[in-house]
Design a protein around this nucleic acid. Structure first.
Lengths: 156, 156
DNA sequence: CCGATTTCAGTTGTGCACAACTGAATTGTG
DNA sequence: CACAATTCAGTTGTGCACAACTGAAATCGG
């Protein structure tokens, strides 16, 4: 396991710049920075955009808060206030399911559905702006998913 | 540029799970989750740990808030309150430079220096817990740095 | 059928991130 | 030298994340 040290040139093995954790942390924030001006134009934050991506996958049937949380790996402590803000922006509706009053269903409004077309070009714009090749893109995606699966898997 | 679509199986091309941005976002949070119980034992949060990694690189000379910000890509709005908390924990000292009263220098206390040894094993523990090979680790690090450099480069 | 347990969304409190701003200290320029 | 521009840390306000908790609703077990 010690061979991971060879990844760096750091004599101590602890320099931030050479740590994968830091690379991941700063890349994630950099990508969010890249999205910010683009999403500003449609009045969304990055996490709000992710919520809408989920809703746009099945625009005609509502998604529960629980399902949203499972997909994005966020709890109600994060989602509840965020969904209120998206609702206040007029993009979604929140209503308790009649057959089970514990469940809140999130559905798109007309405006929320329409926003999808405006955002259609975003994924490609971003992918093209990262400065990496298709091979790197695919490999990166695969490795990131592996890490997420490993960590989230060992937790449950 | 359109060839990025082929990365996914999503007929619409917008499913969250297939987006690199989401993979990056959730991997970053998963890794933070992985660190949390480990860092809890030494009473640090993940961003606080990153600050200490910077300070441990040159344990005997202070680092200014500006330098810290440049290294971690964080502004004073994030750093100032965070540094106060690390100071309150007794790990660092903050003092204005006599020759330039605008600058605040951050230096390690004895306790802050001692904590380094306790944290020495963390990078390897984490690297070993991600479920990826050395090759994937190296490649991932390289690609993430490329993305960060590209994005941060086009901003300045 | 009824009380214990579980499920669900929401609230509270803490700690980042980041934009926008403040104010003090320093530097640059006429 | 004077004063405008810049540099630096800090503050304020907003929006995530996440832990810990609350309370209502549904399910389970006897």
């Amino acid at each position: 396991m010690g061979y991971f040290c060879r990844v760096t040139d750091d004599p101590i093995g602890m320099g931030v710049r050479y740590q994968l954790c830091f690379a991941l942390y700063s890349a994630s924030r950099a990508v969010t920075d890249f999205y910010r001006p683009i999403l500003d134009r449609v009045g969304l934050t990055y996490p709000q955009y992710l919520v809408l991506l989920v809703l746009w996958e099945r625009p005609d049937e509502p998604v529960t808060v629980k399902e949203l949380g499972a997909t994005l790996r966020l709890d109600s402590g994060t989602l509840s206030p965020m969904l209120k803000r998206i609702e206040a922006a007029g993009l979604i509706r929140r209503e308790r399911r009649a057959s089970d009053e514990r469940v809140v269903e999130i559905g798109l409004t007309g405006t929320g559905r329409e926003l999808r077309a405006e955002c259609a070009a975003i994924p490609m714009t971003v992918a093209g702006g990262l400065g990496i090749s298709l091979d790197e893109y695919v490999q990166l995606h695969r490795t990131l998913e592996k890490i997420t699966t490993t960590i989230n898997g060992t937790k449950e």
